[in-house]
Every structure is written in structure tokens, then in C-alpha cells.
Design a protein around this nucleic acid. Structure first.
Length: 294
DNA sequence: TAAGCGTGGAA
DNA sequence: TTTCCAAGCTT
């Protein structure tokens, strides 16, 4: 097949590479439901594949449909989320399931615009679900795709902090016209970024498009943009919130203030984090001085 | 727009 | 040991 937008063979070669080298991930099984794909996309937001795999399997076993999840308290979703991180995603996935049940007759919607209205679904996730679960033609622009295209076409090691207009236009320009081919390209170029064109120590020797790569042609110039914001963790509210929520997740009864005080020394920070967890809906106050999952 | 939001494995 | 970072979303 000739792809009009791809005279140099970028897309066809990446797709051919994908056909041979793709990882065998369960949410890529053609039998995986749109809901199963959606759950994987939520869990994979900022969390590595290896840690998602077991939790995803248990989740789908317990809640094979949006209706099944929506029928349970949101706190059960937070508990099942375990230590994947960013537990508000669990809350949003539960809220999205509830919305799918209420508005979409229990079926995960297939269009970008409908998906985008769901809680926890932004530009990337809406495009990804539409493309991967329904085979639609979408510009799927995640951190992997941005890095690959930024290198191959832009000649730069890393993309900007946020998606630029130029990046989006570049991604649209290489998206195959044919719908199923476009969907395959989207997953293929993401996979290339995930396993070959990685952020650090890219495996250029294994890349199917090294000869097309502008970054390589330029001699692999180092990133020279503004410093990328590092993530400190020790002593942050994130860590404090994580400690507190872990107590509630592992307990099946309300957790008393005394136990919370035992896991974080600073009273001021502890109280602030407790209040923010309640504000976010990750905890509810039960009686006097006790907290539980919603 | 930039900051906030978890967690743990690998380099 | 420290640093980096892994399929983002929300406000």
C-alpha cells in the first residue's frame, strides 16, 4: 500500500517494525473490550507497564464492565488501585464509569469528543481509546510519540514542556489517511518510543528509521531547552498524602487520627494533607477524628 | 500556564 | 546514593 503522506516510508517502516517487535500486552488483544482498553489507558498515565499489568488483570476480573464498577463505592476503586500512584485516577475512572452508565447506556463511547467529556480523560486518552479500542484515525500524541517525532523530524533530543502547535501539525502530517493504518501507526510509533527511541540511552542500532532521523543526522545534539522540572519527593505533600491514604487503603475500618499522626511527624503538613485528601474525595471523615475511603 | 498530584525500578 | 522518569489530567 502506498501512503500519500509518507513518501520517505516513515510510517510504513515503523508499522513493519511493530508487526515484528511489538510487546504482547493484554490490552492489545483484539478480544480486549473498549472498557479494558480504557482501564489500561487510565492506569498507564504516568505509570510503567510492568506495574500496571497485574493490577489491570485483577481490575478487569472484578469489574468487567463500566456498570460493574459504577455499582460499587468509589472507595473500592481506590483500594483496588493499590500502589499504582496518583490515586485520583481511580476516583476519576469510577466517575467515568458512572457517567458511561448514565449517559452512554453502559458502552464506552467511540468518538474523541464524547470521550473527552469523561472525567480523567484528556486529549491523549480520548485519542488513544478512540484509536486503540475502535480503530479510529486520531492524532495520538503522548510523551513517546512526541519524543520520536521530535527526534526524527525535529532534530531535537526532547520535546518542549507542553505540546506545541508545530508538534501537533507535524503529527497530523504523518498520520496515514487510511483509518486502520492510522490506528496501527499510532500504536506502532508509541511502541517505538517506549522500547527503542527511549528518553535515555536510545537504542538507535535497533531503530527502523535511523536513516530518516534528523536528530541523528545532526550528530545527536544534547537538549538545550529550559531545565526540565525535577520531581523531589521526600518530605513533600505527595509523600505525606501517600502515607495517609495507604493507611486507609490497607484498613477495612475507619482509621483514627492517632494512627495518622504516627506516620507523619509534622502536624501542620499532616493536617493540610488530610484536608486535601478529603477535599479530593479520596477520604471521608467518619465520626470524630476518623477517616475512611469513600 | 505552571504547578500539583504517587510510586518504585533502573541507571 | 541520587537522579531520572513512566501511555497525563486538572485547575
Amino acid at each position: 500500500m502506498t501512503i500519500r503522506t509518507d513518501p520517505a516510508g516513515l510510517t510504513s517502516r515503523v508499522i513493519a517494525w511493530y508487526d515484528e517487535h511489538q510487546r504482547d500486552l493484554p490490552w492489545r488483544d483484539p478480544a480486549a473490550s473498549p472498557w479494558a482498553v480504557m482501564v489500561s489507558e487510565f492506569m498507564l498515565q504516568q505509570t510503567p507497564v510492568a506495574r500496571v499489568l497485574p493490577v489491570w488483570a485483577q481490575w478487569l476480573d472484578r469489574w468487567p464492565t463500566p456498570a460493574a464498577l459504577a455499582a460499587e463505592p468509589a472507595g473500592e476503586a481506590v483500594r483496588a488501585w493499590g500502589r499504582l500512584g496518583y490515586p485520583r485516577r481511580a476516583l476519576r475512572l469510577h466517575a467515568a464509569a458512572t457517567e458511561i452508565e448514565r449517559v452512554h447506556d453502559g458502552e464506552v463511547p467511540s468518538t474523541y469528543d464524547e470521550l473527552l467529556t469523561l472525567p480523567g480523560v484528556g486529549d491523549y486518552t480520548a485519542a488513544a481509546i478512540s484509536a486503540f479500542a475502535f480503530g479510529r484515525r486520531q492524532v495520538v500524541l503522548d510523551t513517546n510519540v512526541r519524543r520520536v517525532l521530535g527526534r526524527v523530524r525535529g532534530g531535537e533530543e526532547f520535546p518542549a514542556a507542553s505540546v506545541t502547535r508545530a508538534e501537533r501539525e507535524r503529527a497530523a502530517a504523518v498520520l496515514p489517511d487510511d483509518e486502520p493504518t492510522a490506528a496501527t501507526w499510532s500504536v506502532a510509533v508509541m511502541e517505538l518510543g517506549a522500547v527503542v527511541c527511549t528518553a535515555s540511552s536510545p537504542r538507535c542500532a535497533d531503530c527502523p528509521v535511523t536513516d530518516l532521523c534528523a536528530w541523528r543526522a545532526a550528530g545527536y545534539p544534547a537538549y538545550d531547552g529550559p531545565p526540565r522540572r525535577g520531581q523531589t519527593y521526600d518530605g513533600t505533600d505527595r509523600q505525606c498524602r501517600g502515607r495517609i491514604l495507604a493507611l486507609a487503603r490497607d484498613a477495612h475500618e475507619p482509621v483514627h487520627r492517632s494512627r495518622i499522626e504516627a506516620v507523619w511527624p509534622s502536624a501542620e503538613q499532616r493536617d493540610r494533607c488530610l484536608a486535601s485528601l478529603v477535599h479530593d474525595g479520596l477520604l471521608v471523615r467518619v465520626g470524630t477524628g476518623a477517616y475512611a475511603l469513600p
